[in-house]
Design a protein around this nucleic acid. Structure first.
Lengths: 354, 354
DNA sequence: TTGTAAGCGTTATCAA
DNA sequence: TTGATAACGCTTACAA
């Protein structure tokens, strides 16, 4: 005896594609839908013979389980939400690529939401993913952390519904996991290298005052401190994210130079800023690294475009990305996972430094 | 009278987050679930008073509709599948960013699948998105088109289930829509510009033999033909995609030079190849554009990194991306949409040409 | 304008 | 090992 559902697709002239469902299959195979479902889900409690038969019917009828129905039953669509401030940014694009590939290799799909950097939009993005019942979410970058603690409430709230992983940022909260590179240390080592190769006045260009941005800045200070030198505050220059472009940075530095600011090295929080510094050197006829040493951050493709190539910090993005996924999937499988995983950056020396 | 579902969440000590459903809301509001559903979907057939009351209850109880159930009922999750060969590629990353932003502004989500360039993986990606019942899919780039017609069967098959849009490629099939930039013409104009500024021997570097790759090559030939000049076949050089890197291109060109191949200009199918050409010029002490003119393709951020900056073809990616979305959503709304939309590229002249 | 109840296509529980 | 059936939470005819 079958229930009413069995008759659904019968003797109807279909105008659209016929969607075979589990009832059709069970009927053709002469078994119940429960058995079909078991076969589908590799349940051990099916005889080999039945299984083979059902599988054959499935193959023949081209049946594909309906993902929505499955999602409704299991309350999961095996989907992870990826929140990215800007998918066009080369660093984030690279991270996105690593995350997606790793997730897919574990049969998880990615729901991508590019939020921009505004808090309000990020909150919306998180809420949207929450409402879509993703299995977990990955926040890409420390952009997601606000300095005011109460502005991070949206993350805590999301973490009550599902595990949250933050890529390259540190945040303490139940069900929130962080995987990052020690950017303070990496920046410190870069600055130390400049100091140790004879530079006295390192201009520090940074484009973000978010958590990581300040962390890197702290690394710069730590380098001077470690060498017993005072920091010249006028060498610390903030360059608003929205207005970052190579010519803008170039012109900005020319302006600083014309105002009489002296510097024999440039360290920056992102490669693109350092490319601007190279343009500045070119405009003023300064040799690199003779007159001016330059170090970037991220070791992105940009660092290979310039002449000479740009010394830059490799922040181990691949390892960080893969660990984000490993941590998230571990949590979903009920394993005990570390709330914080820290990698160490590495200075890649190229032609722009001694 | 309410049905059995009304009692679901009653007097249960919840261990997990309480998920309010439409029944809870209807009960609290003293209306039926149908009315709640109508309010949710902005049906006009609800009195203002009832609507306000239900809305208040929804607000108070923090109710969020279950996306899976909704998907099951409507057979749609308002989600578009994005198939991208490589999200880390700067061109595709930029396209991805435009597509996502445009889709989100229309309340559509993006399911991202990075397939790589292998046919088998791409087929899998398409099938996966099909099985997830996305409302439509966008194939990013002509990578998805195979030269053998039967290898494109997977696209025709997908198009039977849902509308398919291909970004920057041309393909004729019912329910498949193409939005592209005329790359043959753009490449022709770039080559003509080189010929018209005195270059005789333009080395053409290309990284892909897919549909667009051959199109661009045809543009190169057309330029010579338009000027009544013969094409020197030994100036056409293929550089396998997988091995593209700036130093590899540089060394390859040095090799060609050492073999005695003469060229006074380089035109390429992607900026990164042209950056390699600049490195080559630097190694051999050639001045740009004096000894060697160089033109790239895509007008990507890379074109701004070099010294001098790289002349490059702007292929109107933003317009193309936005039109992809407009076309797809138009189709989903049942409108009649053009099967093919063609934009025109533009040569952006910078310092690497006369 | 509102309510009733029948789908939607799975999974999971329990009984056989 | 199998089958019957109750969830899952929503949309939407159709009735009232």
């Amino acid at each position: 005896m079958y229930n009413k559902n069995d008759l659904r697709n019968e003797s109807i002239y279909m105008l659209e594609v016929i969607t075979t469902n589990i009832y059709n299959v069970s009927q053709k195979a002469g078994v119940s839908i429960a058995t079909v479902s078991r076969v589908l889900n590799n349940s051990p409690h099916v005889s080999a013979k039945t299984k083979a038969h059902v599988l054959a019917v499935i193959e023949e009828s081209g049946y594909v389980p309906n993902a929505f129905a499955r999602g409704l039953g299991l309350n999961s669509m095996k989907t992870i939400g990826l929140l990215c401030p800007n998918a066009a940014d080369s660093y984030l694009a690279q991270a996105l690529s690593y995350l997606e590939m790793t997730l897919r290799s574990h049969q998880y799909d990615c729901l991508l939401s590019c939020t921009g950097r505004e808090l309000e939009a990020r909150i919306q993005g998180v809420e949207l993913l929450t409402s879509k019942h993703v299995d977990g979410m990955i926040l890409m970058g420390s952009t997601f952390l606000e300095s005011k603690e109460k502005d991070n409430e949206y993350i805590r709230k999301a973490a009550q519904q599902m595990p949250v992983v933050i890529l390259n940022a540190s945040f303490t909260c139940e069900n929130v996991y962080c995987v990052l590179c020690d950017e303070k240390r990496a920046t410190m080592e870069a600055a130390q290298y400049l100091l140790d190769t004879g530079c006295k006045n390192i201009l520090y260009l940074y484009h973000s005052k978010n958590h990581n941005g300040l962390n890197k800045l702290a690394g710069y200070r730590a380098a001077y401190e470690s060498r017993g030198l005072p920091v010249n505050e006028s060498l610390l220059r903030f360059f608003a994210q929205d207005s970052v472009s190579i010519p803008a940075v170039r012109d900005y530095l020319v302006g600083l130079h014309n105002k009489g600011l002296m510097f024999d090295a440039v360290l920056s929080s992102e490669d693109i800023l350092s490319v601007g510094a190279m343009k500045y050197a070119h405009v003023l006829g300064k040799t690199i690294p003779g007159d001016l040493s330059i170090i970037g951050y991220n070791s992105s493709p940009y660092s290979l475009c310039t002449e000479p190539e740009l010394t830059s910090v490799d922040n181990k993005l691949k390892a960080v990305s893969q660990q984000c996924v490993a941590t998230l999937l571990g949590v979903l499988e009920g394993k005990e996972m570390p709330q914080k995983t820290v990698f160490t950056g590495e200075l890649i020396k190229r032609g722009s430094t001694l």
